[in-house]
């Protein structure tokens, strides 16, 4: 395993008015990895990434892959010009701000920062093969 990080759970959050209460880890993965751009209800999905240390934890727990592979993945996709990785924000605060303001946005934050202004769609558990 990589160097130990704070074993805080990561919460996937969306706009408070989202008319669905939860997503599966796979649905979250497909959205963040650019496989799909819509939510199960057919609404457009805008994944928000962040460049904090939480990012590595999030992707490793979500996909079971080191974050370097995720970067390589995106590098490959980007090279084709057909798609680009999710927009990256500096920290949880900026993510919260953006999710509160955009109905289709979906992002992830430290679980401890969750408040009532947003809806938690999924709590990401450490990935188990």
């Amino acid at each position: 395993m990589a160097m130990p990080v704070a074993q805080a759970d990561v919460a996937v959050i969306a706009h408070i008015k989202s008319n669905f209460s939860s997503l599966t880890a796979k649905q979250v993965q497909d959205i963040f990895m650019g496989r799909t751009r819509i939510f199960p209800n057919g609404k457009f999905a805008l994944p928000i990434d962040q460049s904090s240390p939480l990012r590595a934890e999030f992707y490793e727990e979500l996909t079971g892959r080191p974050v370097e592979q995720i970067n390589a993945y995106w590098a490959r996709i980007m090279f084709t010009g057909q798609a680009s990785p999710p927009q990256r924000l500096p920290d949880d605060e900026a993510v919260l701000q953006t999710v509160r303001e955009n109905e289709g946005a979906i992002g992830y934050i430290d679980k401890t920062r969750v408040d009532g202004t947003i809806r938690v769609l999924l709590l990401v558990q450490p990935w188990k093969p």
Partner: peptide, 13 residues
């Protein structure tokens, strides 16, 4: 690479 192409539906890859 093929898996990535299939996964991301990326015809260029």
């Amino acid at each position: 690479t093929a898996a990535i192409a299939a996964y991301s539906n990326n015809s260029t890859i």
